[in-house]
Design a protein around this nucleic acid. Structure first.
Lengths: 338, 338
DNA sequence: GCAGCAAATTTCAACGTTGCAAAGCCTAGC
DNA sequence: GCTAGGCTTTGCAACGTTGAAATTTGCTGC
């Protein structure tokens, strides 16, 4: 059995409270007793019981990070950053997966399955609507990542998706490409990210006085490799020939698309230039390496964690804020060749 | 403030214990009182306090999964499987990263930072030695993944690395390749995986009556993309010309290596065939797609979680066991072309 | 109408810790 | 020698829950 304060106290011949004082560095403890206690602590291998402390303090030191899928590179990288940053602030992160299922996401966040276990929640929502969130009756603070849910009532960290998508599309336009496809639209989803990126794509066209060819905007169900290959196969089948550039709403879509292009005997970027989004590591080592919009994931993680910690510490109780992280376009071989 | 049993009890006009009984479905509660309590529960939005329960029960329902790096695809995929399986058994997973630093790993596992918080630990060790583990004085059960640490005293789940590596190498030999390089050896590390794979590589050669050319066995510091590119660059610089096949000890190394090969104007697989290890998703969509040894990650996760749960339930207290998961060679374009 | 028994409900204590406040000890000062 | 005041140490209660046992209630049968 694990040693308790009481066991240490008995062994050292002092009261429980004194042991607690020593362990926590509280109050003034005489050198003599302190040493006796410390000896007993190490002899018994005493470790404070975190659960009991949590109960006493009313906080657990745990924050939940809810992401759709842990094995999607973007979320894995984000999770790593969150875990690392949270550790700096003395918090432990529990990563939960919504498995890409809106219902499961809703259930997790609404019911807050482990109520009173987590001090706070960071949610990278897939399909939460404003209504959904308004109904949330959990007690812990929540910070949203990525999706912007207007008037959600919660703090929100994101990048400017419209501007970022516009930047990516502009890059393609400036390379002289004229038939620029977009892969990843989700016009009917509650999730807003895809729609914002489509808007950026359209704005870039307008900015250059171009018409948007709606037949080049291909929706996908999800943002996985397979959706990218499927979308690109569709594009290649359409009349009018292949596009000469593609803006994909994330890197997985882009890598999937590239695979199909190469398999079809098209060259990237000579025949078709491809831009992705997220800057996952695999894109850097692909051949051709992937031009992409790189959100500053560490900044996103940091902003989210710090905001949450601030709320937990009661340092802020004002209205929810929008926090913006940086991003940049990283130009690689998939648009400019070697 | 969150509602407590007491609040519900007052509202429903019953004792705390009765509310507890209703909430837990215990004992026999009259329909009348049950309904009153249920009404009060939903009016107050009562949720059991998990921490208090944990304290009472002496278990938290949390298990820790320690992996070197969460954003390395193999570990992310493994983590996903562990999280999913653990959920089936009512456990929540806390993913911790050792950041690829042996010292940090040692500290985490030895001191068990959050003592008495986790009911059990699943560790994918990077560099724990037998001595390290013997000194562990934590109380919670531990299951090891991957690395086999002889006589560690802990349950262990893995695949047969020697046989798997042999299978991969045999595949290359049977394709008629004669200068087969190996990337990823770590002769001086405590971690054993690399050494086992090297042994499999050697055994395949012996089996076919071939000499192993030690100059084709390239060690790497880690198992990342960058280590793969670096190793392949070295190989290409060596006298004797490029190898005609490479067995990489994981997929990241392989993808890194392929990139360097293609950049050097070599064709994969025509000039150099490449095999990886892990079957990460990115390998499937690479061009050329990656032939690889696919450990059954779900089985690994399941075996580990189930073993841990069994220990926690006190169903086993016998000697630690070795559990073996399946694996298979998945042949793709990087060795047989299209 | 009441013993006898089962069902329903409650009381009490405990899980291991810490906040609070009181108690004990010691030294300095007169 | 006694007291004030500071330093050190301690006891008690509480965080929210549940196990065990005690108590109350309700019912059956005679």
């Amino acid at each position: 059995m694990a040693a308790r304060l009481r066991d240490v106290a008995e062994r050292a011949g002092v009261s429980i409270r004194t042991v607690s004082n020593v362990v926590n560095g509280y109050a003034t403890v005489s050198r003599q007793k302190r040493e006796r206690v410390e000896a007993a602590v190490s002899e018994l291998g005493y470790r404070p019981n975190v659960i009991a402390r949590s109960l006493k303090h009313g906080r657990s030191g745990l924050i939940a990070l809810m992401v759709p899928e842990l094995d999607v590179a973007y979320f894995a990288e984000l999770a790593r950053a969150v875990v690392t940053t949270a550790r700096e602030y003395g918090y432990t992160v529990v990563v939960d997966q919504t498995d890409g299922e809106p219902d499961r996401e809703r259930e997790l966040i609404m019911r807050d399955g482990s109520a009173n276990l987590f001090d706070g929640v960071i949610l990278s929502p897939l399909a939460m609507s404003q209504t959904d969130l308004a109904e949330r009756d959990a007690t812990s603070p929540l910070v949203l990542l990525g999706e912007r849910i207007v008037d959600s009532g919660y703090d929100h960290v994101a990048i400017d998706n419209v501007a970022a998508a516009q930047l990516a599309t502009n890059h393609l336009i400036e390379l002289g490409r004229t038939r620029i496809a977009a892969i990843g639209d989700q016009p009917y989803e509650t999730g807003e990210t895809a729609q914002l990126r489509t808007r950026g794509y359209e704005q870039a066209h307008q900015q250059h006085g171009r018409e948007v060819d709606r037949s080049l905007v291909v929706p996908t169900r999800q943002f996985h490799f397979a959706d990218g290959t499927e979308a690109m196969e569709q594009l290649l089948k359409r009349p009018g020939g292949p596009p000469d550039a593609v803006f994909c709403y994330n890197d997985l879509l882009a890598l999937g698309a590239i695979r199909v292009l190469l398999a079809a005997g098209l060259r990237v970027p000579e025949d078709v230039a491809v831009v992705g989004f997220d800057d996952i590591e695999a894109g850097r080592y692909n051949t051709p390496s992937l031009t992409t919009v790189a959100p500053d994931k560490r900044a996103i993680a940091r902003l989210a964690v710090e905001r949450l910690v601030a709320r937990l510490g009661g340092e802020v109780d004002d209205a929810p804020v929008e926090l913006w992280a940086d991003y940049e376009l990283i130009v690689r071989e998939s648009t400019v060749g070697r």
